[in-house]
Design a protein around this nucleic acid. Sequence first.
RNA 1: GGGGCCGUAGCCCAAUUGGCAGAGGCACACGGUUUAGGUCCGUGCCAGUGCGGGUUCGAGUCCCGCCGGCCCCA
Length: 832
Amino acid sequence: MTATDGHRMASDVYDAHALQEKWQARWRANNPFVASEDPADDRPRRYVVDMFAYPSGDLHMGHAEAFAIGDIIARYWFQRGENVLHPIGWDSFGLPAENAAIKNGTHPAEWTYANIETQAQSFQRYGVSVDWTRRLHTSDPEYYRWNQWLFLRFFERGLAYRKEGLVNWCPQDQTVLANEQVVQGLCERCDTPVVRRSLNQWYFKITEYADRLLDDMHQLEGGRWSEDVLTMQRNWIGRSYGADVEFRIEGRDEPVTVYTTRPDTLYGATFFVVAADAALAEELCAPDRRDELDTYREQVAKLSDIERQSTERPKTGVFLGRYATNPVNGERLPIWAADYVLAEYGHGAIMAVPAHDQRDLDFALKFDLPVRNVVDTGDADPAETGVATTGDGILVNSGPLDGLTKDDAVERIIGILQERGTGQGAVNYRLRDWLLSRQRFWGTPIPIIHCPDCGEVPVPDDQLPVRLPDNLKGADLAPKGVSPLAAATDWVNVSCPKCGGDAKRDTDTMDTFVDSSWYFLRYCSPNLDTAPFEKERVDRWGPVDQYIGGKEHATLHLLYARFFVKVLYDMGMVGFTEPFARLLNQGQVINGGRAMSKSLGNGVDLGEEIERYGVDAVRLTMIFAGPPEDDIDWADVSPGASLKFLNRAFRVMVQAGAATQPGTDPSTGDLTLRKATHHALDQVTKAVEAYRFNVAVARIMELVTAARKTIDSGPGAADPAVREAAEVVAITLSLVAPYVAEEGWERLGHTGSVTIGNWRTPDPALLVQESVTCVVQVANKVRDKLEVSPDISEEELQRRALASERVQGFIGDREIRKVVVRPPKLVNIVVG
RNA sequence: GGGGCCGUAGCCCAAUUGGCAGAGGCACACGGUUUAGGUCCGUGCCAGUGCGGGUUCGAGUCCCGCCGGCCCCA
């Protein structure tokens, strides 16, 4: 038996696990993926970051997909010989570690670092092209020290502040949450309904950056970020243009300001609503309504936010026995307290225009309040239909606004309000400040000392990091509603850095999203101990050329990181205003049409899949399954088929390697295969650059098939074109299936690694086609096909099409109305 | 209820962005080779693009309206 007869020999067997061991050892020894920090290195710099992992256990299928995708991009750049920074780290603070520690009676660090080690080994095995010298863990004091340092810089600039207010409280996790971490009224982490509590908490003033977060999005448009994520962020920030209007309240000196997006409907206001839980409701309540309000407020307090804001739920409210005065027409408006108005939005009070707002209309109909139409939209009367008319129209019943369109009326009324000093145009945002305190242990201590005399005193920079105490473990960490750190009295009690008196440390820790808001900057100088990062290096690498991660962070991590970079820019610490130039959101890996979950019992274990098929086949399956943004249903794909293909590819490389030497001149090789090779190379390059990785794989498969055919039923394995094809297979396949590519490259007789700097440019001479098939249509039906030169002129093509006897037959004696000529592919003859 | 994305062979997916609907894979069938055992070579099969309109010489692609699915916000 020979190696060229198309049959498998024992030595041709692609043993995935043996190759994994062999090449991992080589990569560890050679460190091929270390980025160069030499400023004189003039290769193009590329910075690619995969969202770092939370060490919840071993890697899972979701990680496998995301990292397979990121690695294609990184390895493509490596193959092109560019200077690539592809780092890795762990987002290693957070609740699961703490919960595990409570359960096992240990310290969170034990669980955390054990899992990190497990994941690191899995990463090694997964063959990801990372620079291991830059590895970081956010739970290291060397890292979180800089969280504290940055917090203090924010504090100095007034961007970190403490205030008392209603906050989201998760009763399960026993901590507060940022607005972004409440999804449909539930805790993003554990799905427990979130309740409101009034607490004194630390915030980052992200609202100050609302405009820039919106306006800088032009840098991310045009496909650099998905439109989807940009839309989510725009809606989340929720900028609206309207007016602040001052309403005088009978028996109160100060007017109350309300924000409205529809100042044009001011003449249609028929009542006034304050949020039931706002302090204003209590203040404005007439004495004889007090009992009723108190009872109502108790009911409201029990409701979750989802229930409160549900449009399905009947409206509830209490008349407060007081009146407000409409500043434009002096009308008395009864003041009600209700739960559909939120204390936290705008000013916690609204003017109600039932004709043109559905929630107001529902309320008015429930409590028999008047409905006055002030915009004639052409729709039926809201008071009768129960449907508010929110469209554009002509103003009526509105004094000076009558006859105006909505936009003109808005402009006019704002002018009138300003003249009278009772209002002005205003911008409002849905975005709230980022609540960053957490009443949990396993996070970055907030570096503030509370002194009875000096107030909030920053921990001096030279005393950073404020380390977590290491003598708390197990039950000490159980949630109690206050941070477990409060129990570490040795740790809490300190002297004030200002006055030296007795003082206490802040016992809350930071939201872990602080850690992830700047880690991609730390990678540029991971061991620096004088600053969070070195500006020169960050500016050299940044912004991140390609960021890869899930869409679920649209209004969380991705928003926070953008905010951080803008603040750092203002501080002169970075030279760019957006962290991620391009963002790719990979889909989820599901199974049987549903997310994998323990309760459904449909989980797929990554380790088991790898055991069965090998790393290369699993990675190939992830990539070939479809576009990177799409979900992969593991029930629909076939890792077995991937393995089969890798065997085919491997055999081609082995057979070519056995038949010819490296450096063989391909120019005398089989022309058909040579063209196929260069065509594949061209197509793979284009597909990779367009992120159509599944298509790139399909083109490699075609090339393997073409080589197979040449070996079996053409000139045979010794043809130089077979070697050329096999080498291109090794090079292109290395992006997806690095182990088999390395081994194939070695079997092809090369001594080094295939991984770096081997990408090839197709020979243009081998890409040109002598002829293409041109379709000739008569009345939209294909009637003839012509073999024409690819660069045929319009006139020549039309002449040849009309010269065709078949075409003439189909035209018959009908009149030619028009001839559409699209050289070289199509001619369409339109006949009468 | 509002906003966004998506519906192409039995299944996963392509389609040079308005030009012959099919590249690749799965499954299936058949043939060859073979002590392959989810892993060899080859051949074949299958839809007119969710439904209904519109624009156009020409629509999977653009526009409008439905139906279905997913996501975000209520």
